[in-house]
Computed example of a mutant assay.
Amino acid sequence: MSSPDATKDRLIEAAGREFAEKGYDSARIRTICERAGANLAAVNYHFGDKQGLYRTVLTEAYRRRSTTVTPDLGDLPPAEKLRRFIRFFVEQVVVGEDDGEWRLPLILRELFDPTPALDDVIDGWIRPRFELLGSILREIRPGVDERRLAALCFSVVGQCIVHRITMKVSGRLLGPGNPGCLDADYLSDHVADFTLAALGLGPPAGMGGPARE
């Protein structure tokens, strides 16, 4: 007989796949329970209801994707803090996990078609990173207004996220002979170089800097 914790774990795995494949509205608790080898009452026992299950699964997706919420940047110069943050963000959010896992597809589905559970991950994961990035950019541009600061933050994040969203397309554009050419090292260096150049803290993009060739 399975322990309660084992049943809960199986439900999270089964629900993760169901929600990632079908979205919250189309996912069915009965199907999740069948996939998990659990009875319907187990969902209510462990999670309260479908929404509670979904919130748990979405939070678990973020927890497993990320080893920590924010990096420790210490007393580094602002430009190096930005470079380290971008590297952290690329490694934690952009690269990896394409072989049938449910966590990243679920996260992306939630971002494009949000449910009330998005507030949980915004408060626990997204906002702390956004505020840290904002504080770094504030050091670099102390006189900027709040709207411009937000736009700068989204510009940095957007450069990273676009590589995740278009990864399958870029793989076909670049061809099978170039696997991994836009890996974490290259992408993080490129985004950092590009951003620092735009902020006046580096040479024009493509004209030098630490991006790997």
Rank of each mutant, 00 (worst) to 15 (best):
D9Y: 12
A6P: 00
A27N: 07
A15T: 12
H46K: 00
G16D: 04
Y24S: 14
T31M: 09
N44L: 05
F47E: 09
Y45N: 06
A36G: 08
E34W: 06
E34V: 12
I12Q: 01
Y45E: 01
P4A: 01
R30F: 14
L11V: 13
K8P: 04
A42K: 03
A15Q: 08
R17K: 11
A41E: 13
I12D: 02
H46P: 02
R28T: 08
R10F: 04
T7M: 04
T31D: 15
R10P: 01
T31K: 15
T31Q: 15
A20P: 03
P4S: 01
A38K: 00
A15S: 05
A38S: 02
G37A: 12
F47K: 07
K50N: 09
I32K: 09
N44P: 03
I32E: 09
A27I: 08
K50W: 09
N39L: 01
G48R: 06
D5F: 05
Y24Q: 12
G16R: 01
A20R: 10
E21S: 13
R30I: 15
A15I: 04
K8N: 10
H46Q: 00
Y24A: 14
L11D: 02
R30Y: 12
D5C: 03
T31P: 06
Y24D: 14
A14E: 00
A41G: 15
P4Y: 00
N39P: 07
Y45F: 14
I29P: 13
G48Y: 03
D49E: 13
I12L: 14
G48H: 07
C33A: 09
